[in-house]
């Protein structure tokens, strides 16, 4: 099966390790991605300015995938919620759909509602399945404790994700982590937001939100943290050093994208999984993984 890979804005520029590892893991699992150069921003940043303008941008992206007859796989939580919500709203309101299509005519596009949008992690969990992942694991990471961070827009709001995981007590990412042989520990306030949504509004508040989760994850003694959203990773990985400096503390918690963790368990080298681009260096973590293998 072939899917349109939707990268969004942040990943191609600031999350190439996510993209590299997702592509590599997909190849290993026999999942085919098609790149569509015409895809733009999903529309998320426009929602706070003008809801209808956001829908236009989202609908354009969906229409482009429809033209090729391909379902969309996303990597970013914000792209996922934005595209899935737009689809839900347009499919549920003929008048709105007509209004949006009227404007899409200007660029020769039409939204029909024929393609599905899935986050890569959800796709792995629901469509590929955890059992099949387990079959593919060559190097179980059984000495690793990997703390799951779902990110808000992977499971909330219920209105958009009604047929998916529990919005307050999810288990999909924990199960995906466990499929690699690693342990996924429970920790306080697992559902806490990374703070990324207000980084541009009030940085000190945003970083305090990030810090609280890093404190909890340090406390539980995790070897790494697992993210499935580029913006959550900017907060925990990209800003970790800054938080350490500001609050005179130390974490040194590597923040891996889930495909990086899965890739290691599939026997793929760290180099091929883009580990070089992780901001918090994963050297010690990778040594621990290696120790497990021998």
């Amino acid at each position: 099966m072939k899917y349109a890979l939707f990268l969004g804005c942040t990943i191609p520029v600031r999350g190439q390790n996510y993209e590299i590892s997702a592509r590599r893991v997909a190849k290993e699992l026999g999942i085919e991605f098609e790149d569509i150069k015409e895809f733009s921003c999903c529309g998320f940043p426009i929602k706070s300015i003008d809801k209808e303008a956001q829908l236009l941008i989202s609908a354009r992206n969906l229409a482009i995938a429809e033209e090729r007859g391909l379902d969309i796989i996303t990597l970013c939580n914000a792209c996922t919620i934005t595209l899935q919500e737009a689809k839900m709203e347009l499919d549920g309101d003929e008048e709105l759909k007509r209004k949006i299509n009227e404007k899409l005519k200007k660029i020769g596009k039409e939204y029909k509602g024929t393609v599905k949008v899935r986050h890569f992690a959800r796709f792995l969990y629901e469509d590929y399945t955890v059992d099949k992942i387990k079959e593919k694991v060559k190097k179980p990471l059984s000495n690793i404790k990997a703390a799951a961070h779902y990110g808000c827009h992977f499971i909330r709001p219920t209105e958009v994700y009604r047929d998916f995981d529990d919005p307050e007590h999810p288990e999909s990412l924990d199960k995906l982590i466990e499929a690699t042989g690693a342990k996924s520990p429970d920790y306080p306030d697992k559902q806490r937001c990374c703070g990324g949504g207000i980084l541009g509004i009030k940085e000190e508040d945003a970083l305090l939100m990030t810090k609280e989760k890093l404190d909890d994850i340090k406390e539980v003694g995790a070897d790494c943290m697992i993210s499935i959203c580029p913006f959550c990773s900017i907060m925990y990985d990209g800003n970790q050093k800054k938080i350490e400096k500001t609050y005179e503390t130390e974490y040194k918690i590597p923040v891996l994208y889930y495909p990086q963790l899965l890739g290691l368990a599939l026997g793929i080298s760290a180099e091929e999984l883009g580990f070089k681009q992780n901001r918090v260096k994963a050297k010690k973590f990778l040594e621990k993984v290696e120790g497990n293998g021998s």
């Binding site: 191609p12 590299i20 209808e52 303008a53 404007k103 200007k106």
Partner: peptide, 26 residues
């Protein structure tokens, strides 16, 4: 940098977005 990392090149500008944002009055 993308090319070096084995990633496909992407379009630097997607003009249709501008057309739509103009259409939306922004």
């Amino acid at each position: 940098k993308r090319k070096k990392n084995g990633l496909p090149e992407l379009n630097a500008v997607i003009d249709e977005v501008k057309t739509l944002l103009k259409e939306a009055g922004l």
